[in-house]
Design a protein around this nucleic acid. Structure first.
Lengths: 333, 333
DNA sequence: TTGTAAGCGTTATCAA
DNA sequence: TTGATAACGCTTACAA
């Protein structure tokens, strides 16, 4: 690999001059610049970003921590963040946190030690205090899909309470009164908030929230599958079910079908997130649209503005979910 | 951020000694080691991996290039690679190639300039020659789900021809004779090979391959949706359809349903890849199992063996696909 | 077992 | 507009 030094020799200029053309510094004559460019081309020179990063203390890369590398939700999130950042010439270093405190801390530390200029994190297990503290360090932390009061300027979040509310209200408006709920792991803020919204809607309709109607799942298909099975085993009577995310809703569909339910007729099902595949399920899934892509883009813009000093109009910190009405939620009969 | 220098001062030892304990070099007395460890703790020292990487020319990180950051197939691939590598204390830098030549090259160059010790790439648009050439450079390239003869020792691939063959043969065995095919973009080796397998199966049954029965999709849901629509518009008669991946199969399902098909009765559908969601579709999708997770793990092991000199038993270079029989492919009537 | 000092490939500060 | 030269934080011969 050619270095800046060899380029400078071939071009007959000094190291600094080569560095200048590399950094598009204007104080280089056209002639010299061309000489350097030619030398670079001839040697197939590729700047070593590690060295640049060490010397400049700026890596042009932002760390991204997501819970999982697979799964439709995080896929859309990563993809949106990456696209926006790449368009601005920044790179992304992605690492998974697996929703476990140790692993999240680990991932965050990795990104910091990698000299990321900033971090966009979707963390679920780590405490607010830890984040506030970490954010005081050399690497600014931005949170996506999480709200922490003391660093709210660095947060892009979704009104999950509202989302949970909308989902349940939709079912109530359709005439359903016996509604079960499959939550995500309640230590996760998203999951807890959505459940709060659910209760709020019930409350508005003067319906008592019954612990028997709650099952805590894992945000995966199996969580939904097992949840519905659980309700069946407990001989719960209900006409509608709210799932705290779409994967669980699709697990519910599978289980319902295995119990010879005809869908959507025999059970109204609503999901949450509106991930891509929901419109390909049968019946198409009614769900709450979670604008992850917009949020990812916004988080990237926030970093671009605050860290890279680019002009970005109108940062929006809190997003609102919307009801996506499809076929899985029939009126109660 | 504390540096190794400050640690050395506080511990009253030299830089090299600190470096030694950092690298778990044995030539350090227990006592000194403890002093250093204490100092590190007190200062909250975090090694700067950029600097380490520059000095040692080893980053303990491997670059991963996948076509997309979202989508179930790549999710599973990334996740498997990352998990295996992380278990060995290595980190992963992921970047997308978007199946475009420029972007793939770009991503590859980024990973190289980032001092990755090796690269695991799922590339589709770049030529074999380019890869062979690139692999001669400082960063070894390993290919996943692609076979290049001149660097076959660095390839982990799937027998896609066999996969395509199995899919179509399954339908033929069920009595279907009018079979359409929705391919992926044919410049992608995977897509081309699967189609070859399809033709081979037809040939074995003395069925003429008809260009009218082929639609080239995009490996996304819309590709399947549009493909089926295309066949309908051309008044094609057929009882079964092969899709070159699962996303397209789910698009086909959606389109069929919109045309009032009753599934699986009115149309046999088979997919390819066996991504996670296929067993949550309705009807559950018969498909060809693509062992991406195993392949990802194997690619990681290959890197661990060749680059990090770890003992890894039995590297398997070529994987075989398997038929996953489910409910979407009824017998022809 | 420990320390000294020369890199690693850049950027950045001066001075020219 | 250009060039020396000292960082950046660490590893790694080589010496002690």
């Amino acid at each position: 690999m050619a270095t800046i030094y060899q380029v400078s020799e071939l071009a007959g200029v000094s190291l600094s001059t080569v560095s200048r053309v590399l950094n598009e510094n204007d104080y280089v004559s056209k002639k010299t610049k061309q000489k350097v460019l030619d030398a670079m081309k001839q040697l197939g020179y590729q700047p070593n970003s590690i060295a640049r990063s060490l010397a400049s203390n700026c890596s042009n890369s932002v760390g991204v921590l997501v819970s999982e590398l697979d799964g439709p939700f995080f896929g859309e999130m990563m993809s949106a963040i990456e696209a926006q950042l790449r368009a601005a010439g920044k790179h992304v270093i992605i690492t998974p946190g697996h929703s476990e405190e140790d692993k999240e801390k680990n991932g965050l530390e990795f990104l910091i030690s990698r000299n990321c200029d900033a971090i966009i994190a979707h963390v679920e297990a780590v405490t607010d205090d830890y984040l506030v503290e970490l954010n005081k360090g050399k690497t600014p932390i931005f949170l996506i899909s999480r709200y922490v009061e003391q660093m709210k300027e660095n947060c892009i979040s979704l009104d999950n309470v509202m989302g949970g509310y909308l989902a349940t209200k939709h079912l109530l408006d359709l005439g359903h009164r016996d509604i079960t709920y499959i939550a995500g792991p309640l230590f996760k803020p998203d999951a807890a908030d959505r459940l709060t919204g659910h209760k709020k809607a019930l409350n508005e309709y003067n319906i008592h929230f019954d612990e028997q109607s709650l099952y805590v799942g894992d945000f995966k298909e199996t969580g939904g599958y097992n949840g519905l099975k659980h309700f069946f085993e407990n001989k719960k009577q209900f006409t509608a079910i709210v799932c705290a995310n779409d994967e669980m809703a699709s697990g519910v569909m599978k289980c319902a079908r295995e119990h010879n339910f005809e869908l959507p007729k025999d059970l109204a099902i609503i999901g949450f997130d509106n991930v891509h595949f929901t419109s390909y399920l049968y019946p198409t899934l009614t769900t709450i649209d979670n604008p992850v892509e917009q949020m990812g883009k916004m988080a990237a813009n926030l970093v671009l503005r605050d860290i890279y000093k680019q002009n970005r109009a109108d940062i929006e910190h809190i997003f609102s979910p919307n009801l996506m009405m499809r076929d899985s939620t029939p009126r109660s009969n």
